[in-house]
Design a protein around this nucleic acid. Structure first.
Lengths: 226, 226
DNA sequence: TGAATAGTGTCTTTCAGACAATATGCC
DNA sequence: GGCATATTGTCTGAAAGACACTATTCA
């Protein structure tokens, strides 16, 4: 690390950037992929949509800051988080020098009511295919994190963050297809998923469709990711 | 992003962490994978080895800071860099709150003389299998970045960062094997690499071995990775 | 001519992808 | 019984992996 030539270290010697976290929160509703955005009420970018996020405090780690900010702004808790990239363009924030650490977040929208008992500003889900104009460099951040999601979803261990603990194979396939924006053959999908050995067949069925479907859960193996 | 409730933004309102970059610089020598470490001369962790790195300045981006610090401490230039992860444990630095952005760096050791015309402290290559005791949380950072290297080397487009522009298939195979610490069958390796269509056969041979070997170069396609 | 390393081909197994009919539960 | 959707198997082509001998250059 740094400062190997100073025998007396003075932390005030260097200017420091502000450090924020920004969250790209994904969910799946009606077989489509959505991202959560907040409407800004103040300068800069007043009335623009932006990613939820905010400043890291001195008594918390980045991931804790991400969880706290998300909860403050949307009342969401218990979310899956994965750090993706740190953005540091010098003029990315007109107020002052700010670097931001971008997090990927996955939630099951069934379990969430946005802006319930909270002081959050307007929070809304937007389809990834229909993003509004965004504040700061948040368009770029979303593109970066969305790509990360597509590259990483194929180990399938994150899928329950979208679907909950129990899900049918059709629900799983629909989710994967929404994320990739691409359909696959049902028989091939099932053959591959089952051959991976990551699912447990449960003694329960889902009755959300005409013919009931078997429910599955993820085996309790640790994910490669995080 | 942050601070949506304040109509007058005051950047001094929040304490800020220091922000550093740390580099895990890999090279391959004698078919082994090495990491570059610097010996610390001052508190804290005096006389411990540590990763090269240092503070980001207000007039540069993180990647520029990484390039600058590496050049200052080791005289290395023209290095391949990839941001990997930002570490933010509260007590990871005994001096003050410091978050650090870890970079993966790959160099061809043939082109580098360490600590040449520079004011660098002692800089040495260590085999990844024989790391000394390290300052800060640098052991953890190395493990994280090393894993990232292993997961990403298999698109093969980074291999020339280790080997230079021209290399034989045997050199390439040895490098891949060193990174994975695992041998593969020579015929299968060649069949696969050539089938990828990423290499151009040159009209030159390497005479470093008894029987001269054909030289190859990477085709000028853009890498997936940065 | 022998030492050292470059270069090469076949067989088997596994995985990916195209493809359509049957089974079940509900109304 | 008809509707909606769950469930299932085969074939084919491509890629991965096991495996050993010949070719070339130099000393």
């Amino acid at each position: 690390m740094a400062e190997e030539n100073e025998s007396n270290y003075d932390p005030s010697k260097f200017d420091k950037p502000s450090v924020t976290v920004d969250l790209v929160v994904f969910t799946i509703k009606d077989n489509n992929l959505y991202i959560l955005l907040i409407k800004r009420g103040v300068w800069p970018f007043e009335d623009s949509y932006a990613l939820p996020g905010g400043f890291m405090r001195m008594d918390e780690k980045l991931k804790q800051a991400a969880l706290r900010e998300l909860h403050e702004e949307t009342s969401i808790k218990d979310v899956f988080l994965k750090q993706v990239h740190t953005f540091s363009d010098i003029d990315r924030d007109p107020r002052t020098r700010v670097i931001t650490v971008a997090y990927l977040a996955l939630i099951n929208s069934d379990n969430v009511t946005l802006a319930a008992d909270t002081d959050a500003k307007e929070a809304r889900w937007f389809p990834v295919t229909k993003m509004p104009k965004l504040a700061f460099d948040h368009k770029r951040i979303i593109e970066y994190v969305h790509k990360d999601l597509r590259h990483n979803i194929d180990n399938y261990t994150m899928i329950s963050k979208f679907l909950g603990d129990k899900f049918t194979l059709t629900q799983m396939q629909n989710a994967i297809e929404a994320i990739h924006n691409h359909t696959v053959d049902k028989r091939n999908f099932r053959k591959k998923i089952l051959s991976l050995g990551i699912l447990s067949e449960l003694d329960e069925v889902s009755r959300e469709t005409f013919r009931p479907a078997k429910l599955y859960s993820l085996k309790k193996k640790l994910s490669i990711i995080q």
